[in-house]
Design a protein around this nucleic acid. Sequence first.
DNA 1: TATGAATGAGCCTTCATTCAT
DNA 2: CATGAATGAAGGCTCATTCAT
Lengths: 227, 227, 227, 227
Amino acid sequence: MPRSQPAPLADPASAPGARRARRKEARPGELIDAALALFVEKGFAATRVEEVAARAGVSKGTLFLYFPSKEDLFKAVVRETLAGRFTEWNAEFDVFEGDSVALVQYAMRSWWERIGMTPASGITKLVMSEAGTFPEIASFYQQEVINPGLDLVRRILQRGVDRGEFRPLDLDHAVYSLIAPMIFLLMWKHSMAPCCPSSQQLDPVTFIDTQVDLILHGMLKPSTPRR
Amino acid sequence: MPRSQPAPLADPASAPGARRARRKEARPGELIDAALALFVEKGFAATRVEEVAARAGVSKGTLFLYFPSKEDLFKAVVRETLAGRFTEWNAEFDVFEGDSVALVQYAMRSWWERIGMTPASGITKLVMSEAGTFPEIASFYQQEVINPGLDLVRRILQRGVDRGEFRPLDLDHAVYSLIAPMIFLLMWKHSMAPCCPSSQQLDPVTFIDTQVDLILHGMLKPSTPRR
Amino acid sequence: MPRSQPAPLADPASAPGARRARRKEARPGELIDAALALFVEKGFAATRVEEVAARAGVSKGTLFLYFPSKEDLFKAVVRETLAGRFTEWNAEFDVFEGDSVALVQYAMRSWWERIGMTPASGITKLVMSEAGTFPEIASFYQQEVINPGLDLVRRILQRGVDRGEFRPLDLDHAVYSLIAPMIFLLMWKHSMAPCCPSSQQLDPVTFIDTQVDLILHGMLKPSTPRR
Amino acid sequence: MPRSQPAPLADPASAPGARRARRKEARPGELIDAALALFVEKGFAATRVEEVAARAGVSKGTLFLYFPSKEDLFKAVVRETLAGRFTEWNAEFDVFEGDSVALVQYAMRSWWERIGMTPASGITKLVMSEAGTFPEIASFYQQEVINPGLDLVRRILQRGVDRGEFRPLDLDHAVYSLIAPMIFLLMWKHSMAPCCPSSQQLDPVTFIDTQVDLILHGMLKPSTPRR
DNA sequence: TATGAATGAGCCTTCATTCAT
DNA sequence: CATGAATGAAGGCTCATTCAT
């Protein structure tokens, strides 16, 4: 998860006293933030460690003080950025009181606000792009993010079915109806949009709402009256 | 589009006569096939031209006889793999006689058979992964593939609306309901599936059918009787 | 020595019959002409054999039919371009009937017309430029061109001394007074002039006349009346 | 201008303290010296950057720390070797008090001692040899060295004419009478002499004195009594 | 701990040379 | 003889990593 304040590109001895100590503790995080941004923007191979160090305001040598290699830095970026967010979400959705239509809408919008629109969204793009080069990372990501995410979605849909709001669904496949737009949106945002003017017409919030609307009404029982 | 037969790694003097000429014509295609496979598997940067040449059964120097640089090879891969497929498809869909539900199903299944399940599918993954490094390629892809694809989908949906089969749709956003599953499926197939056993449970054909089913019924007029 | 007609850059089967035979004999010469021009213009290393072949209107392979290597081609260029010109000149000067001032003027102007202003002048530039890489060639050139040239000049000066037109000279060093301007002019013409506008102000003929004038009057006996 | 002491090929940990810093400042100069020697000896194209680095006692990568490319290294060699020597010389000659004959002799001998006999002399040979490949360098050399040099010579000759020591001269051409022997001598020294035993008979100092003597007496007024 | 100069393995690219046709 | 497709050794340059300071 990105630090609240971006690392200054150069910080020549500004603060007075116990600054050094605080900096020292913050170093790994600043480096990870810088690496996340650059990896997402340019890919793993095209990002030079010197760039990462510069963006974090330290020298190249310092980076290797905290991360034994570029590859380890990458793994740290992935691990750090996805630290246990699902327990929180699971709990949140468990006590949700509205109908399942509202829950799905709420879940998707929450995801956008907490992940999709933040720099953290870049790591999904990153992991998928570099999966071939780092199968281990991809596998790790699958277990730590994808599977919990699928479970979360499954529980939401199951709730709708159980409450009689959704028609009986093949949940094993239906879950992807919610996951797919999210993955698509991330890839789109980080790949096509930055360099293709015509791609920027896709407004993420409207996109999400539209997808949810289309998908939901296809999941509702036929008898459910349209709004 | 991949050549029908992969280049033999070594083929010492088998055919009799105008062997050279035939080889020369085949070379670019063989190289593009090899490059496609390796780029998709390992990414652009991690693929060495020597590997590509070796896989195509030629030496490193020969590759540069046909492509002035590694980047040009990449561009050629992208261009070749998507060469004018949309005119054909547009014509095909124009004369489609079934209802729009069937047309959408047919379109999605056709896409899977002709693109999704072939090596050509890898280039979308490739382009999105390397978009940051090759904005020019991404832009090219947007114009030559994405936009025509969106137009094609739009025409299909418009047809359904015009025929009274679909409820009125905001086409600018609805088109992504069909595009998103395709992009997702490609990324999944080329990123997570190869290295994550639990990801292989996602059967592409079932996935497509499920998504189409969910999406379609959401698009149909409420009055349309369910099956 | 350059062939009278430059090789056509491409000559696809124009003449009727015994053309092939004539071409065949002319090949080495055409290649040498092409090589001379390119070597002079771009240096030995920067000239590609394919360029030479193309300029001679043949394929790369054909060049190697006549010259076993690029280096041999270079040697052939040097040898061919300086084929025994001094016997002719020696004889010519032996029967010269004017005074030695006129002979020196005549010799220098002849040199300019027969060597300096022709493409042959380029090989001196070439040999001196590449002497470090081809000591053997430089040595060959020294023996075949430089030394005979020095001898020729020496005989001219000796004649002037013998006839009482020139003051007694240290011929071992005086000969360079005539050689130096020639070498300088060649280097200037082939190095600075082609790329430096301000260098083109040096008119070769005026330059030669001026140098001869200055040197001669310095060599004449003080008693010799000025014209 | 060459450093006074050639770089040691390997100097493992000899000095105590701020060793790194001192090395860093010295590096460009050491590299330029090494490059000068090798470029002059073998030509630009035939010199490998790795050789230059090795001769300077560093690794290949280090060279690129100081010079972005081989060509830039070459340019640096040219620039460094000729850096503003003319202002100094102009001033020196302005206050010369002897007659113009002595001034010309002094100028030529100075040139030999400060340029001609030093490694710096090699760059003129280098620039002229590689002018075809690096027109930009040749142009730069023309402006920064040749033209100032011609101006310097012109002022010397003009002084002689103004003081009534030289006969009226076409200075535009006469200047080359002093420049030509210098260029010739450099080319000779760096091209023919190293590989041709018979060329080594040309003693540079004697050559210069002889040329000056011959030229000067041709420039003096006829009325000027010979010494 | 932090620095950044130094390293050197590795990769893209060139081009003289070969040889099957 | 002529061709030009193919080769592969060589070299310029990059950049992750090390280590003396």
